[in-house]
Design a protein around this nucleic acid. Structure first.
Lengths: 220, 220
DNA sequence: TGCCGTCTCACCCCTTGGGGTGATGTCGGC
DNA sequence: GCCGACATCACCCCAAGGGGTGAGACGGCA
């Protein structure tokens, strides 16, 4: 059989299991992998050809947006479809800017989910009700729309933001990302300026208040 | 048939659908209702006899803890089993104090979930791995244990903690509390030591992770 | 009475962090 | 080809923060 090859990425095993059931009921779809975090997802993408990655945004280890950016970089033919609890504007924009082909919320009907997987596999887009497909290109093309929470940050800065939000010090960041401390400080300064935050303490507050990190995104 | 009558309460339709599938596979269980929020759940409990309510904690309209309290009040025979993404201490305690008979996280295995439903229906308890059933009574009986997150702090230090969690600098704190900067630094140091936190950034993280401040406890 | 905990404050240290400026190299678009 | 965005790094400055020590005032309690 040559169905659409799909990988599930979600930290909830129960949800992965049920998604597998739901999607496997559609004979066009073949769920070939499921993993619990972004890091594992990237490993799979490196090794296997996939058509669609169904990805949660909120995950431990590596969040969905960063994972999406990495996946579209190393496997441009693979479509990433976000599936998440939140329809938060900033996350939608962040995910789409990272290269996601669609964005569904978890209250989607099972049948609609399967259809959406087929849609993105065929190169079209899938968005939760109300949002038009044209929005995708618009968001990608418009050079600078201020959508507040993370918008305006470069991918690297988003990465830095994530580490700041988890309480990392500059030296820890420069170790984790293999950068010089001066570089880290440059990025941190850019993040503070662009988000109009006073210091890294307020970065953490901003992150939690906007749901950009959640419980269980524990520092270690 | 006279299976265990179960209602599902979760705002994610997809999860409800899959839970229904998973649970219906067990012939001891009969899923008789599913609703999207606590308010609707209470309406159902008023009208029908139920054995087990499988309840998410995070929901719009009426949260799971409040709904649980109301359900055990109006239908003491009905067992409430929390099913949630978080295994956060405060939420566990809150749910159990509200009268929940069990607390599972969503990474539970499908088979274990079905078994847990049967367990609570028969009057026993179900807790996520590692937590003993005896904890339930203990938690309910102990009058008021400061849930460790702020344990050991003096009143003044708790006050300082609150300001730290909202992103205040030392100078702002000394202005707000009319103290010398040296005093503020002493208190801050005490807070960091007692909670075993590295710096004020981690104080903010600690506060959010333990639900000591929430959304909308905005800095200003 | 003396002891202890708490709150207050002072002085010292030095690392960390925020802010400014500027210089590379690379990449993609016009 | 040029230009802008991005990422990288280097220097500078200095305020803010974390850490140690010690000490005076006040209250409760044995």
């Amino acid at each position: 059989m040559s169905g659409i090859r799909v990988m599930l990425v979600d930290d909830q095993e129960l949800l992965r299991a049920s998604l597998r059931t739901v999607l496997s009921a559609d004979e066009r779809i073949e769920v070939t992998h499921d993993v619990a975090n972004g890091g594992d997802a990237i490993e799979v993408v490196r090794r296997y050809r996939l058509d669609v990655v169904l990805m949660d945004i909120r995950m431990p280890r590596m969040d969905g947006v960063a994972a999406t950016a990495e996946i579209v970089r190393i496997a441009p033919a693979t479509r990433v479809l976000m599936l998440t609890t939140f329809d938060d504007d900033e996350l939608v924009v962040a995910a789409i800017r990272a290269g996601a082909s669609g964005y569904l919320t978890k209250d989607v009907r099972p049948a609609a989910l399967a259809q959406a997987v087929c849609d993105v596999a065929s190169g079209t887009s899938a968005l939760a009700p109300g949002v038009a497909a044209t929005v995708l290109d618009l968001v990608r093309q418009v050079p600078m729309r201020r959508t507040a929470a993370l918008d305006g940050l470069t991918p690297r800065e988003v990465e830095i933001f994530g580490l700041l939000a988890r309480g990392r010090s500059n030296s820890e960041i420069c170790a984790e990302l293999v950068l010089s401390e001066n570089t880290v400080k440059s990025h941190v300064r850019a993040v503070l300026q662009k988000l109009n935050l006073r210091d890294r303490v307020h970065v953490v507050i901003h992150a939690y208040e906007n749901g950009l990190v959640g419980r269980n995104d524990l520092p270690d």
